[in-house]
């Protein structure tokens, strides 16, 4: 096995699928010759040729629409949106179009498109680069939203996404791209979509998170252990649809939960999870289910980023509130 960063695992997943299936196409702004602004597509054009890995004009709506057209002719497009803040430029192509095409063709035209895009805070980007917009995507019926938290999952989830016959929004947290390496098999494997992972078993409180916040939760869990609180940490991996079964099973065991997201508080993934927990497990709860989120402002790019973003300390505080309720 090889030691890989998350970005290397992502490149490896695309290479695997480009090799496996001639219908797979990888394209976007600067993904060809340049290998992508984060080098996610490094070497792929050289290996598979310009016909399958190519640059597009700088126009996100065009990229989204063209992906749909290619899917209509039997291809399996893997477009990149250079930064997910640019998704607003292609909201119709994604939410108004590709998400609805299977329905709009009476179930006859699949849209096997995987839209890859970097997002997430803490790396000092300009405005509209770091925003967590997964909640917007999750509200759109017909879309799957996948967010890996580590290199192993990133490769397996991306391969599963590319093979899926419905559109997947695959969001890659920028802070995780090169922050650590882990063992990733060089051969192909898949990680199941729509399935959460228990990253740390515990008995006292359930922490639910995804993306970079999984690591903040794990760090918080270590801190909490010093105070005798044994936290279970769940990594959602797919945020739409949510694997409520795994969450509910855990909450029924721990009787307490804190849901963590980097996105703003209102109308997000976390709010939905809190609702579902109280609908399905209220009699198991010893305390209200709390949320750790960013405040309801636009992303505090560069200036107040460190305070704006949730971190292990703010998670520990909320867990203490829940434990002491």
């Amino acid at each position: 096995m090889a030691q890989m960063t998350m970005i290397q695992a992502i490149t490896d997943a695309m290479r695997t699928e480009l090799k496996n299936d001639d219908n797979v196409l990888v394209f976007g702004e600067d993904v060809g010759q340049n290998g992508g602004v984060f080098r996610a597509t490094e070497g792929l054009q050289k290996e598979f040729g310009e016909d399958r890995v190519f640059d597009t004009p700088l126009a996100e709506s065009g990229i989204g629409g063209m992906s749909i057209g290619l899917a209509l002719t039997g291809f399996r497009p893997v477009p990149e949106i250079q930064f997910f803040g640019f998704v607003y430029e292609t909201m119709d192509a994604i939410s108004g179009q590709m998400a609805r095409y299977r329905y709009r063709s009476g179930g006859t035209r699949p849209m096997p498109i995987t839209v890859r895009s970097p997002f997430g805070g803490g790396v000092h980007t300009p405005e509209l680069h770091a925003d967590s917009l997964e909640g917007l995507m999750a509200q759109q019926p017909g879309l799957r939203v996948v967010i890996p938290s580590n290199p192993y999952d990133a490769k397996g989830l991306l391969i599963s996404s590319i093979r899926n016959n419905d559109p997947v929004i695959f969001l890659e947290h920028m802070k995780l791209y090169r922050s650590f390496r882990e063992e990733v098999p060089e051969e192909e494997y898949t990680v199941e979509l729509d399935k959460a992972a228990v990253k740390r078993e515990g008995t006292d409180v359930t922490l639910v998170a995804y993306g970079a916040m999984v690591h903040s939760c794990l760090k918080a869990a270590e801190e909490l252990e010093k105070d005798g609180v044994n936290a279970e940490v769940i990594d959602l991996r797919t945020v739409a649809p949510v694997d409520y079964e795994t969450i509910l099973e855990s909450v029924k065991k721990t009787n307490r939960a804190v849901v963590v997201q980097e996105a703003q508080k209102q109308a997000g993934i976390a709010a939905n999870i809190v609702s579902e927990i109280q609908e399905k497990a209220i009699l198991h709860l010893e305390a209200p289910v709390l949320r750790v989120t960013a405040p309801d402002t636009v992303y505090a790019f560069t200036q107040a980023e460190e305070v704006w973003l949730p971190n292990h300390n703010t998670i520990v505080e909320k867990v203490n509130d829940v434990m002491n309720f």
Binding site: D51, S61, G62, G64, G65, M66, S67, I68, G69, L70, A71, L72, T73, G74, F75, D92, A93, G96, Q97, Y101, R104, S105, R109
Partner: peptide
């Protein structure tokens, strides 16, 4: 064919994609 588009213009970028798909397949 696909059914009629309601969003004005959304079909135009998709047409570029279908036309590119046909070119790639040599149709």
């Amino acid at each position: 064919a696909v059914s009629p588009q309601i969003i004005i213009g959304a079909q135009i970028t998709q047409t570029a994609g279908v036309g590119l798909g046909y070119k790639k397949r040599g149709e």
